[in-house]
Amino acid sequence: MKLYVVKTPKLLKWVFKSKIWNIKTSQKEVFLTFDDGPTPRITDFVLDQLEKHQAKASFFCVGKNVHEHPQIMERIQKHGHTIANHTYNHYHCYKHSLEDYLHNIELTENLFEQLSINSKKLFRPPYGRISPKATRAIQRQGYNIIMWDILSADFDLKNSAAKCTKNVIENIKPGSIVVFHDSVKSYPILKETLPRVLSHLNENGYQCSTL
C-alpha cells in the first residue's frame, strides 16, 4: 500500500507553511535534492551525471555517512553543490525524544565544522516526519526546514525507473524542489531515472540550481 503522494498538495503546503516546499522564482529553474548520502559509488554516479548535464543540486547528508566518507564530501563541495543536514543517524522524529533528536542534528553540524565543510543552515527531516515542537526548536536555531514539491519515489522498489521518471517530468515546474535518494536501496531505480530527468530538463530549458 502506497503511503505517500508524488505531488505535494497545495493544502498541505498551506497548513505547514512555515516549512519550504518550493522556491518562488521568475526563472525556469528547479531544485534537485538528494537524501541519505554520501554513499560510495552511488553519490559519485550522481555527481558524474550532474557534471555531465551542467546541473547543480543540494545534498541532505546523514552525519554517520559523512564521517565514513569525507572524500565524497570534498567532491560535493568542490563542484559547488549545497550541503545540508539530515541528522546523524537518520532519526525518525517521532521515535526519539526532542532532546535526542536535536542532539543528533547538532552532531552532524559539528562534524561539518570539524571537516571544514561549507554547509548551509538547511534541514530536511528523515522520512519527512517532524513534530511541531521539533519544527519550532530547529527554526529557532536558524535552520530553514526544506520539504519538497515532487517526490520521485525512487525509494519504492515496486516502482519502475519509467514510473519515477514520469513522476518528475509530468509534475515539474519552475521552483519545484524534487527529492531523490543517493542510497543503496534507491540506486537500481536512480541510475536509470536521473539521467532521463536531467536530459529532459536540459531539453526543455530548465536550469538546475542549488538551494
Rank of each mutant, 00 (worst) to 15 (best):
R136V: 13
E113Y: 13
A153T: 08
L115Q: 03
L115A: 04
F123C: 07
T108C: 04
K121D: 03
Q139G: 06
K166P: 05
C164S: 04
R129P: 12
I117V: 08
M147C: 05
L122D: 11
I145D: 00
N104S: 07
I146H: 00
K158E: 06
S116D: 12
A153Q: 04
L115R: 10
I138Q: 02
N144R: 15
W148K: 09
F155H: 02
E106A: 15
T165K: 07
A161R: 02
E109S: 13
A137T: 13
D156K: 03
F155A: 09
R136S: 12
E113T: 13
K133L: 08
N159M: 13
A153D: 00
E109D: 14
T108H: 07
A162H: 07
L122Q: 11
A153P: 02
Y101C: 02
E109Q: 11
Q139D: 10
K166W: 04
R129N: 15
Y101N: 02
K163Q: 04
K166N: 05
P126S: 03
A153G: 02
Q141R: 14
A137P: 04
R129V: 15
I130T: 03
A162V: 08
R136T: 12
N104H: 13
N144I: 09
F112E: 10
R124Y: 01
N110H: 06
K158D: 14
A153V: 04
P132Q: 00
I130Y: 01
A153N: 03
R140P: 10
A134I: 01
T165P: 08
A162K: 12
G128N: 04
M147K: 04
P125L: 03
N104T: 05
D149L: 10
T165S: 11
C164V: 09
F112L: 12
N159G: 11
F112Q: 06
Y127M: 04
F155V: 13
S152A: 06
N144T: 14
I105Q: 07
T135L: 12
D149Y: 13
A134N: 03
P125F: 00
N159D: 06
L107D: 06
